[in-house]
Every structure is written in C-alpha cells, then in structure tokens.
C-alpha cells in the first residue's frame, strides 16, 4: 500500500512538472516564433503517461475509479484535457498553436488541484456500475473536444483583437481555423449527448428516475443547449469566424462551469446519487 502511495505521489508530481514545462514551451514557442513541436508533444505524452500511472496506482490503492471527491475529479479532468491536447497536437498539426492557449487552463486547474487535500474517497453503492465508466468516458471526450475547439477559437479571437498578430500570422487563416473548431464542436455535441444519455440510463437504473433537475443535470442541459446553439448559428446564418469563435468560447465557459463550478458548490455530485 505504501509502495502504491509512493508511486502515485512520484508519478503525480512528475506529471505536474512535465505539464508545466510543456505549457511554458508552447507559450514561449508561440511568442518567440520558435517551434518545438517534438519537445511539447514528448512532454505532454510523457506527463500524461506518468499521470496515468498515478491514476492507476490510486485506483489500485483505494479499490475504485478515483473520480469521486474534489481532488480526484480535478485530477481526472486534467488527465482528460491533457489527453485531448496531445491528441489534437498530433492530429491537427496545422493548428498546433492552440496548445499555447489551452494549456494555461490546465496549469490553472493544476494549481487549484494542489490547494486541495489528496484525500481518499469512498464509493457509494450506486456508483458500482459500468455506467459510471461509460458516462465519465463520454463526458471526458466531450470536454476534450470542446477544449481543443476553445484553443483554436482563441487564435482567431486574439488575431481579430490585434493581440499577438505578428506571432499568430504564420498559422492558417480564420476560415480554416473556424472549420476545424466546428468539427471539434460537432464531436463535442455527439459525446456530450452520449454522456448525458448514459447518465440518464444510469440514473434510471440506480435511482428510478432518469432526470432529477439537480444543479449538475440542469447545467449539463444548459451546456448541451449552448453547443447546439453554437452549431445551429454557424450552420444556419453562415456567421463569420469571429462570431463562431466567440460562441465556442462562451460554450466552453458554460461547460467549464458545469464541470468545475457546480460539483464544488453543491453538497453532492448528483443530488439523487448519494
């Protein structure tokens, strides 16, 4: 048990350092127009593998998926967001600058995480179901896709506002960025829908009702509507990239509040859950 705790702590702190250096490298690379894509990618993947090891050690140590208390939720969300960043970095090489905009959010979350005790959680009986894994996996993919879209949208917004125009000039045009962000938001809508549906099936099974109007459910509905609105506006009105980027950013803010605000201002993750 002590070995697992030691492994968890070492791997966790090593991942924090790797993420921080990756963030610094991505920002410095953008500002000084120096590209270190291999370094950033290696740090992100290396840090993420270490974080996975920390996550796994904790899982083995406490005997259940560590996503229950505040520290575990933050850690799991950081893990998911970094996975999205390195996947986006690999799959969308033309818009890699998005990492410089997205990674500071990860750093901020890590800073928050460090202020929280690494307490061990206990699992309510109703959480012992495969739907916990399905629900969380879909929502992590949703948030990751929206996160990549946010990073891409911020390039457009900064350019349109005239901030760092010279540094951002070498990246693809706003139309291409907009098309890429739109694809990410489409993925976000699909996985948010799947996540909400999986949660509803789980709730129906475990508590007899698929929807309880608890704060997290309400905000997840608001998030879903925000994504729907973003995609609907772009598809129906052919809005310019700046408008679409602002909508993507607004949607991510709503999603961020749903994921990181609501669970910390209510007494239970889901009102009917515990």
């Amino acid at each position: 048990m002590t070995d697992l705790l030691q492994t968890e702590l070492i791997a966790f702190w090593a991942s924090v350092i790797a993420y921080s250096v990756a963030t610094a490298a991505a920002i410095i690379g953008l500002v000084f127009r120096r590209d270190w894509p291999r370094l950033v990618l290696a740090l992100l993947i290396g840090g993420w593998l270490l974080h996975t090891a920390a996550f796994g050690a904790r899982w083995l140590r406490i005997g259940h998926l560590p996503v229950i208390n505040t520290f575990e939720m933050l850690s799991a969300n950081v893990w998911g967001l970094v996975a999205a960043v390195w996947l986006g970095y690999l799959l969308l090489p033309r818009v890699r600058a998005f990492a410089a905009f997205a990674l500071p959010v990860v750093t901020m979350l890590m800073g928050w995480m460090m202020l929280i005790p690494m307490d061990e959680s206990s699992l309510p009986p109703t959480y012992r179901t495969v739907w916990l894994f399905i629900h969380i996996a879909f929502l992590k993919i949703f948030l990751g896709a929206a996160f990549v879209a946010l990073g891409i949208a911020l390039i457009t917004i900064f350019r349109q506002l005239g901030i760092g125009t010279a540094a951002l000039a070498r990246f693809p045009g706003d139309r291409e960025l907009d098309a890429t962000a739109y694809r990410c938001m489409a993925l976000a809508l699909i996985f948010d829908t799947l996540g909400i549906v999986a949660g509803a099936i789980w709730a129906q099974d475990a508590w007899g009702r698929y929807w309880s109007w608890d704060p997290l459910e309400v905000w997840s509905l608001v998030t879903w509507l925000a994504i729907g609105l973003t995609l609907h506006v772009r598809a129906s009105f052919r809005t310019p990239p700046l408008t679409n980027s602002l909508l993507v950013t607004g949607t991510f803010v709503v999603a961020f509040f749903t994921f990181f605000g609501i669970p910390f201002v209510t007494t239970a993750l889901h009102k009917g859950a515990i």
């Binding site: 990246f171 693809p172 045009g173 291409e176 098309a179 694809r183 489409a186």
Partner: peptide, 17 residues
C-alpha cells in the same frame, strides 16, 4: 450527420497576412 463533416478534409486557407 456529423461523421460526414468531421472526416471531410479541411480546405486549406491562406494565412491572414
């Protein structure tokens, strides 16, 4: 619906400058 859009190649657009 979205699979057709997500996997469609993104047309490259010139940089704004």
């Amino acid at each position: 619906f979205y699979a057709r859009i997500v996997f469609r190649p993104i047309p490259s657009a010139p940089s704004p400058t």
